[in-house]
């Protein structure tokens, strides 16, 4: 509300007071309700991050960059980036490639709830339990190897734990449901009439996917990829328990953890965490930037 029309000279006396002017900009008592959460987030998220960033430039010894110099000079450290990517990228891509056709199928199901509830299981159980379970299940005496041997597919147990494949399997089992459920929500968001329209216009199943679904889903797939990738990239408990934490599955989280809790070098640990964040961010930004190439907007044919 602005001042009402009046002929008296003391117009300003009728003008909005400070409280009303602030309210007009959206600042009133209700807005203040956001303050506690914002303060909390500043104290426990922004401040530690900033603190860690600064700390990473204040190494125990050497110049301000020496943590980073040490990281990129020591193969035991810098190779963790490659090892982590070598795990997380293939797993994320595989998860996405598996999730898409399955999401297209499951969309047709009347009762999706049971399947989605089953798939939510490994996510809620968490990485530690999955690692513990797989340790037995995929072990040389586990049911998995036994079954393969019973069917005569292999003559001696495959080595599936304490190496790359153990971690790979655990990332698949916790990552696939996550990727799948995200993909499903994007796929079901697309108006089925679009596909029907394409079919009446002569597009076969592959053309419908290629020219209608794919362009509409690309932005969603990009986001799914990023979220799944970020999870896989920060793999920690399963890399320790199921992998070879001194060898091929010495991922970057392990390096950060060891710096902090074995060497008690918080400055170095912060530097590793920052490097980890930057690598993730670089990949996420690259993928999301490519999203700009695609149509982004409501995925239904009609207005409103």
């Amino acid at each position: 509300m602005t001042a009402s029309v009046t002929t008296t000279p003391a117009r300003d006396a009728y003008g909005p007071n400070l409280r009303q002017r602030l309210a007009a900009r959206g600042l009133d008592a209700v807005t203040l309700l956001a303050v506690p959460a914002a303060l909390f987030s500043l104290a426990l998220f922004v401040y530690p991050f900033a603190f860690g960033l600064v700390l990473s430039f204040e190494p125990k010894a050497g110049g301000w960059l020496s943590n980073y110099q040490r990281f990129f000079a020591d193969p035991f450290l810098y190779e963790t980036i490659g090892k982590t990517l070598w795990l997380s990228l293939p797993v994320t891509l595989l998860n996405l490639f598996l999730a898409v056709p399955i999401a297209f199928r499951v969309r047709l199901m009347r009762n999706q709830r049971l399947l989605t509830a089953i798939l939510v299981l490994p996510i809620t159980l968490g990485t530690v339990l999955v690692a513990e379970g797989l340790l037995n299940y995929l072990g040389p005496q586990g049911w998995f190897n036994r079954t393969l041997m019973t069917f005569g597919l292999i003559s001696q147990p495959l080595k599936l734990v304490h190496n790359y494949w153990g971690v790979f399997a655990s990332l698949l089992i916790t990552g696939f449901p996550f990727t799948f459920l995200l993909t499903l929500s994007y796929v079901t968001g697309i108006d089925p009439a679009l596909e029907q329209a394409a079919a009446t216009l002569g597009a076969n199943a592959w053309q419908r996917f290629r020219h209608v679904y794919l362009p509409l889903l690309m932005p969603g797939f990009a986001i799914t990829f990023c979220l799944s990738f970020v999870q896989a990239f920060s793999v920690f408990p399963s890399a320790v328990l199921l992998g070879a934490p001194a060898g091929p599955t010495r991922v970057i989280s392990i390096a950060a953890y060891q710096a902090a809790f074995e060497e008690y070098d918080y400055s170095m640990a912060s530097a590793v965490a920052m490097i980890m964040g930057v690598v993730q961010l670089a990949i996420v930004v690259a993928v999301l930037a490519s999203r700009g190439l695609f149509y982004r907007g409501p995925a239904s044919g009609a207005k409103g």
């Binding site: 679009l194 209608v212 409501p298 044919g301 009609a302």
Partner: peptide
């Protein structure tokens, strides 16, 4: 009925 135009 809802046209089903391809939004992209």
């Amino acid at each position: 009925q809802n046209y089903a135009l391809f939004p992209h």
